[in-house]
Computed example of a mutant assay.
Amino acid sequence: MATSSSETAQRAVQARSRILQHIYQTPLIPARKTGQDCNAKLFFKAENFQHTGSFKLRGAMSKVSAQNTQGRLITASSGNHGIGAAFAAHALSKDVTVVLPTIVVPAKLEKIKSFGVNVILHGAEAGMAEQHAQQLAASGNYVYMSPYNDPEIIAGQGTIGLEIIEQCDQVDNIFISMGGGGLIGGIGSVMKTFSPRTKIYGVAAINSKALAASMSAGHVVEVEHNPTLAEAVAGGIDEDTITLPLAKSVVDQVLECDEAEIIKALQALAFDENMIVEGSAALALAGFMKVAQQLSGQANVVVLCGGNVGNEVLKGFMSNC
Rank of each mutant, 00 (worst) to 15 (best):
A204V: 03
V190N: 05
T228P: 07
P227V: 04
N226W: 02
T243I: 13
G186I: 03
V221C: 10
I237P: 03
N226A: 12
K192G: 04
E224I: 15
S214L: 01
A204Y: 00
T193E: 14
Y201F: 15
P227N: 13
V233N: 00
S208L: 03
I200Y: 06
H225W: 08
T198L: 06
S189R: 03
P227G: 12
G186H: 07
E222S: 11
A234D: 09
G202S: 07
N207C: 10
H225P: 02
K199F: 08
T198P: 02
V223W: 01
I242E: 00
T228Y: 04
G218P: 12
A212E: 08
H219Y: 14
S216P: 00
E224V: 13
S216Y: 07
G180M: 02
V221W: 12
D240V: 08
G181T: 05
K192V: 02
G182H: 10
G180N: 11
Y201D: 08
V221T: 13
L229S: 10
D238C: 05
K209P: 00
V223P: 04
T243N: 07
G185Y: 04
I200A: 03
E222R: 07
G235Q: 05
T243A: 03
T193S: 15
G235N: 09
T193Y: 05
S189K: 01
S195R: 14
S208M: 02
I237S: 03
E222M: 08
E224M: 09
V223S: 07
V221P: 01
A232E: 01
D240N: 14
V221E: 13
G185C: 09
L229W: 10
D240I: 08
R197W: 09
G186T: 06
P196Y: 07
N207G: 14
H219W: 10
P227I: 01
A205Q: 04
G185T: 10
L229I: 12
S214G: 09
L229Y: 13
I184T: 07
I187M: 05
G180Y: 06
Y201P: 02
N226G: 07
L229Q: 11
K199V: 14
E222G: 00
G180C: 03
S214F: 01
G180L: 01
M191A: 08
D240P: 00
S189A: 15
E224H: 12
T193N: 07
V203N: 04
L211W: 06
G202P: 06
Y201C: 09
A204M: 05
G182S: 14
D238H: 11
